[in-house]
Computed example of a mutant assay.
Amino acid sequence: MSEEKEQHPWNALQQTPLNDLKRRAKIVDTLKEIEPVELAGAERFAYDCGDGDALAWYFAADGKVLLVTFLHESELNTFDCHEEEGEDYAVQRSYFKGVPEDLVALVQNQEETDELLIIDDATGGRTIQVATGVYWCDGNSWYVAEGLREHCQNAGLDVFDEGGFYMVYQYILGRPFTPEAYHAATFNEYLSAEENEERLEQVRAVFASVR
């Protein structure tokens, strides 16, 4: 009998309660020593996945959530990719079509951080966070941003593969979020057995401390 096929992370995200998802985001940020950021009406948890890839969760006070991912080698990357002045910004902004404006406001005119790059509109008046994946939740269901979906359909691209959605692996979506599950998903093969055991104990301590 063949093993049951693992569900797609997008389906697993749909099944993860938002309060549980926020706790997972808090734990990962704590483990990575990244401070959450308080915005007007929202809280941001960002993570640099290495090699230029990053993601950020925006949990709004009204229950909506925005997830942006950035895969630097993606064909969707607009950063310094167009010749005409302001076109990088225009294309990037188009990915957010269909996302509620109060969520889009969370990625506009924000300061650049170590994890999150921004693009300006060439006039210096507006900026927007760089993203290859734009996904949002209305408090109940998750959606791919309409603009991103349209762009990918026209270009023949996969919104998850090119968007860099793989980065949600560390949140163990669709399965119990335990220290052991997180440690297994992020196991460092270059550490000794003793070092990995010490790391697991550190992970357990963080899980116990975050509510």
Rank of each mutant, 00 (worst) to 15 (best):
T30N: 15
K5Y: 12
L66C: 05
A155R: 14
G133K: 01
L39G: 11
A208Y: 01
C152R: 05
T178D: 05
K97C: 04
Y58F: 15
V104Q: 10
T113G: 00
E101L: 12
A193Q: 14
A25F: 12
G163D: 03
D120I: 02
L66Y: 07
E4D: 10
A90W: 09
T16L: 06
V104G: 06
N154M: 13
V159G: 00
E87K: 15
G147I: 04
A122T: 00
K97L: 06
T132W: 03
Q92D: 06
D161V: 07
A12M: 10
A131D: 04
N19A: 14
Q15W: 02
E194L: 08
L157E: 07
Y190D: 13
R204A: 01
A131T: 07
Q15V: 00
A56C: 10
Q92M: 07
S2Q: 06
D158L: 03
A155Q: 11
Q15A: 15
W142L: 01
V104I: 14
A60R: 12
K5R: 13
R126K: 15
Y135K: 05
Q153C: 00
E198I: 03
E112D: 01
V130P: 00
E162Y: 01
N196R: 09
N140S: 14
V144P: 02
V206T: 09
V99S: 04
D114G: 00
A56I: 10
V28R: 11
V28N: 09
R93A: 15
V104W: 08
E3Q: 10
R126M: 14
E85M: 11
G86H: 06
A205V: 02
Q202Y: 02
I172T: 05
G86K: 02
F187K: 09
V107E: 06
T178V: 05
L71N: 07
N188Q: 13
D51T: 05
L13P: 03
E38C: 04
G98I: 04
D102K: 07
N140R: 09
A60V: 07
G147H: 02
F45Y: 15
P176D: 13
F70C: 12
E197L: 07
H72M: 10
E33R: 13
D53I: 06
V37K: 15
